[in-house]
Write a protein that binds this DNA or RNA. Structure first.
Length: 458
RNA sequence: GUGGAUGUAGCUCAGCUGGUUAGAGCACCAGAUUGUGGAUCUGGGGGCCGUGGGUUCAAGUCCCAUCUUCCACCCCA
C-alpha cells in the first residue's frame, strides 16, 4: 500500500449530510429557545492563551487540555537538561503558549472581564461552539464535541435559575426527549460537610456520594473511608445520603439536620425559593428533582447545581451547569455572580437517534426535481425551475441527460417528492408532466400552470 | 493515565487444531427494460485480511509491538 488509509484523529468525527441536518435541527431548536428567553449570541476563538485555561478545571482538567505547539523554533529557549522523559509537562509549558478551549464557560469569563466596559449587565449570552478534551474516547464521549452554553452574569437573583430550568424544559420538550432535571445546591453540600464535622473534606465527600447510583451506598461508604473521612462522620452522613421522598419532604428533613450550619440553611433557603418559583411558573413537562448526590466535578460552582438526564437512555448527563459566584474573579473582576447551563449536543444527538426522535422530513432537502432528456428539453424547464426557487420551493434539475431509470432512482434516494418530466411530446404541447414519487400518480399540466400546480402538491 | 476486548470487500460478518487462487449477504455498476422509480433475475467491479516485525516449508489463522474502535475505571457533555 503506497499510503495508509485516510483517517481522522481519535475521538473526532466526520458528519455526513444526514447527520448534519439532524444536528442542525438540534442546534436550531436550542438556539431559538435561547433567543426567546432574551439571550444574545457570542463566539470566542477555538484557541485561548494557555494561561487563561490552566488551573481552571483542576489537576485532571489541566491534563485534558490540548496544547498547541509554538510556531518557529520552539526549542530555542528550552534548557536541554530539562527536556527529558518524565518532565514532559514542564517542557510542554515552555514550548506551548496556546491551547484549545476545554469548555465555553472559562472563555466566557475571560470575555466578560475583557469587555466589561462595553457589556450591559446583567449580561445574558449564549454560545454554541465545539470544545476539545484530550480524554480517552468511549460511548458518548468524544475529543471534539459541541457545547451549547447559556449563562447570565451580573445577577444573583434566583429568577435566573428559574429561567434556566424553564429553558431546559422547553428545549427538551421541543426535541421530544423525556428528561429528569436534577437540582442541588453547593451550600447544602457544604452544610452537610460542616454538620458531620468534615468541612474541609467537601470535595472528597461530594465526589464519593456523586457515585451512589453506580456503586451503591456500601461503595460510597468505603470510598469515603479511603478518602479519610471519619467513621463518625460517615455514620452521620447516612440518613442524608439515603434521604427519600418528594422534594418538600427531603427539604423538611434536611432542615433539621442542617440547622446548626448557617451555609447549609442558606442553601436550603435558596432551594426552597427556586422550587417555589418553578411551581408558580406552572406545570412543567420535565420532572424536577432535588438530588443530594448531585455534586458535579467543576469546583467553581457555589450555589445551585443542575444536571439533566435522559429518562429513556443510559448515557450520562446531557446538560449540566450551576451558579458560580467568583468565576470572573480569576480574571480580576470581583463580585460578579453568574449562573448557566451547557447542553451537550452530541449526546442529545445520540439519545434522539436511539429513540428515533428525528422527524423524517429532515431527510428530504429537495422538493422538486426536473428530469433531463437533453439540451433543448433541459432548457425548456429552466424558467419553471427558476420560478419555483424564487417562490421558496427547493428545486433542482438533473444535470446530465441520463436514462430515466437512473434519474428517477436518484430522486428516490434523495427522497424528492415531485419529479417533473418534460420531453419531446410535452414540449410540443407546451406542457410538463409532474409525477408524485410517493403515490406514483402523474399529471400533465400546461406550462403556465405548472408552478402553481407544484406549489399545491408539495 | 490504568485495565480488558476488537480489527477480513463501501457496510454487517463467515473463514475449523496454520495447508491450493479468501467467501456470503447487503450496497455499488451494467444488462434484461432506448420516456417512467422502489420489485425480480443475470452478469460485473472491488481485499497485500489495520500496520510493522517475528515463528514456520507454509500465516487471515500463532507470537510481539503499534494504531483504530469499543467497554470499564478516573473524570466528564
Amino acid at each position: 500500500m503506497a499510503s495508509s488509509k485516510p483517517s481522522i484523529p481519535k475521538g473526532t468525527r466526520d458528519f455526513n449530510p444526514e447527520q448534519m441536518v439532524r444536528r442542525n435541527y438540534i442546534f436550531d431548536s436550542i438556539r431559538s429557545v435561547f433567543s426567546i428567553y432574551g439571550y444574545q449570541p457570542i463566539e470566542t476563538p477555538a484557541m485561548e492563551n494557555l494561561s487563561t485555561l490552566l488551573g481552571k478545571y483542576g489537576e485532571e482538567g489541566d491534563k485534558l487540555l490540548f496544547k498547541i505547539l509554538n510556531s518557529g523554533d520552539f526549542l530555542e529557549r528550552v534548557d536541554p537538561s530539562t527536556a527529558r522523559p518524565g518532565n514532559s509537562n514542564a517542557v510542554s509549558l515552555a514550548i506551548c503558549e496556546k491551547g484549545l478551549r476545554y469548555d465555553l464557560t472559562v472563555p466566557f469569563a475571560r470575555f466578560v472581564v475583557q469587555y466589561q466596559n462595553d457589556i450591559v449587565f446583567p449580561f445574558k449570552r449564549y454560545q454554541i461552539q465545539p470544545v476539545w478534551r484530550a480524554d480517552r474516547p468511549q460511548k458518548g464521549r468524544y475529543r471534539e464535541f459541541y457545547q451549547c452554553d447559556v449563562d447570565v452574569i451580573g445577577s444573583t437573583s434566583l429568577l435566573n435559575e428559574l429561567e434556566l430550568v424553564l429553558i431546559i424544559n422547553e428545549v427538551f420538550q421541543r426535541l421530544g426527549v423525556r428528561v429528569v432535571v436534577k437540582l442541588n445546591n453547593r451550600k447544602i453540600l457544604s452544610g452537610i460537610a460542616e454538620v458531620i464535622g468534615e468541612a474541609e473534606r467537601l470535595t472528597d465527600i461530594t465526589v464519593a456520594i456523586d457515585k451512589i447510583d453506580k456503586i451503591g451506598i456500601d461503595g460510597v461508604n468505603s470510598e469515603l473511608r479511603e478518602r479519610g473521612v471519619s467513621e463518625v462522620a460517615i455514620e452521620k452522613l447516612q440518613p442524608v445520603i439515603l434521604l427519600k421522598g418528594n422534594n418538600t419532604e427531603k427539604l423538611g428533613l434536611l432542615k433539621n439536620t442542617l440547622a446548626p450550619s448557617e451555609v447549609g440553611m442558606r442553601g436550603i433557603g435558596e432551594m426552597e425559593e427556586l422550587l417555589e418559583l418553578i411551581r408558580q411558573s406552572g406545570e412543567l413537562l420535565s420532572e424536577v428533582e432535588l438530588d443530594l448526590s448531585l455534586a458535579r466535578g467543576l469546583n467553581y460552582y457555589t450555589g445551585t447545581i443542575f444536571e439533566v438526564k435522559a429518562a429513556d437512555v443510559e448515557i450520562g448527563s446531557i446538560c449540566g451547569g450551576g451558579r458560580y459566584d467568583d468565576l470572573a474573579g480569576i480574571f480580576g473582576m470581583k463580585n460578579l455572580s453568574g449562573v448557566g447551563v451547557s447542553f451537550g449536543a452530541d449526546r442529545i444527538f445520540d439519545v434522539m437517534l436511539q429513540l428515533n426522535l428525528f422527524p423524517d422530513s429532515l431527510l428530504s432537502s429537495t422538493q422538486v426535481m426536473f428530469t433531463n432528456f437533453g439540451k433543448s428539453e433541459a432548457a425548456y424547464c429552466l424558467k419553471a425551475l427558476r420560478q419555483l426557487r424564487e417562490q421558496g420551493v427547493s428545486a433542482e434539475i438533473y444535470p446530465d441527460p441520463a436514462k430515466m431509470k437512473k434519474q428517477l432512482d436518484y430522486a428516490n434516494r434523495r427522497r424528492i417528492k415531485l419529479v417533473v418530466i418534460a420531453g419531446e411530446s410535452e414540449m410540443q404541447q407546451n406542457q410538463l408532466s409532474v409525477k408524485n414519487m410517493e403515490t406514483g400518480e402523474q399529471a400533465t399540466i400546461s406550462a403556465e400552470d405548472v408552478v402553481s400546480y407544484i406549489k399545491e402538491n408539495i
